[in-house]
């Protein structure tokens, strides 16, 4: 009892302390910049950055860039889900599929995603399809490997029970294997979401004429420093929100799993 009370007490304090620390950091930033301890060329005061951020958000520049990046990012991300979850299911279920594809997967896996950008640029130019493909490549491995793992770790007893009740193969996959593997499939999706954001920014920095990654790098190269910071603030917010969004999604659609496993444990 005592511990719970202590926790609730500290929870009230926690947000408070943390917020003060954050505000102090921003205040320190502001002071260092205003006193010109660091060249204002690199380090504009935070108030100025936030002002530019506000202006660029209200006039639609930053939201537009983010939307462009989102289009590419989710294009590649959903393509990876659409292709890799079924492939993972097949590889997890059928030994033949696994034996055929696993070595190819393993030989491409050490090749890190940004390294394929130059090749993809040769074939697809610097348009949207290039970025979508690179995102697709980057997301494929976590999704595929987690799906295979999830399917392989399905309790054999479950499958045999379903078989005993005379369920068809398709029904077993749909009603037993897929639900049982879904927590791990979801964890693959969660891992690859931040990866897709990183990769889309990288490919926009390397070959693009718009998008948030291009926006940041272009403004740095033309020494529009507050605009650069504004772009980075935007990216930070997007990263934070994506994370939150996915956690909310996961909680909503996978809560049956959590409830169930908690019951098992308790």
């Amino acid at each position: 009892m005592e511990t719970t009370r202590g926790q609730t007490k500290s929870r009230g304090l926690r947000g408070w302390k943390g917020a003060i620390f954050l505000l102090c950091l921003i205040g320190l930033w502001e002071m260092v910049a205003r006193l010109h301890l660091v060249s204002a060329l690199y380090f504009p005061p935070m108030s100025k950055n936030m002002g530019v951020f506000y202006r660029l958000t209200v006039d639609g520049t930053l939201p537009l860039q983010v939307l462009l990046s989102f289009g590419r990012m989710f294009g590649g991300y959903f393509l990876a889900i659409a292709l890799m979850v079924p492939l993972g299911l097949a590889m997890g279920l059928f030994r033949f599929c696994f034996n055929t594809f696993e070595p190819l997967v393993e030989s491409f896996r050490p090749l890190c995603p940004p390294a394929i950008i130059p090749v993809v640029m040769l074939f697809l130019g610097i348009g949207d399809s290039m970025k979508m493909f690179v995102v697709f490549y980057a997301c494929s491995f976590p999704i595929l490997l987690n799906t295979i793992d999830g399917v392989r770790n399905v309790d054999v007893v479950l499958v045999n029970t379903a078989r005993t009740f005379g369920l068809s193969r398709l029904a077993i996959i749909r009603k037993v294997v897929l639900p049982a593997a879904s927590p791990q499939i979801m964890s693959g999706l969660r891992i690859s979401l931040p990866i897709s954001l990183i990769v889309v920014i990288v490919s926009e920095m390397i070959g693009s004429t718009n998008g948030i990654g291009h926006f940041i790098l272009l403004n740095q190269r033309t020494f529009n420093v507050p605009e650069t910071y504004a772009g980075v603030i935007m990216v930070a917010m997007v990263g934070y929100l994506l994370n939150r969004l996915f956690l909310g999604f996961d909680r909503r659609f996978m809560h049956w799993h959590r409830g169930w496993s908690a019951e098992q444990a308790g």
């Binding site: 917020a19 954050l22 990183i198 920014i201 990288v202 990654g213 940041i216 190269r221 772009g231 980075v232």
Partner: peptide, 22 residues
């Protein structure tokens, strides 16, 4: 941890490559 948490939670999900220009 409680003091640092909000700062960390803001910095952590930020894609590392975005800070290259800065």
């Amino acid at each position: 941890y409680q003091t640092l948490e909000p700062t960390i939670e803001i910095l952590r999900p930020m894609p590392s490559v975005a800070i290259i220009p800065i």
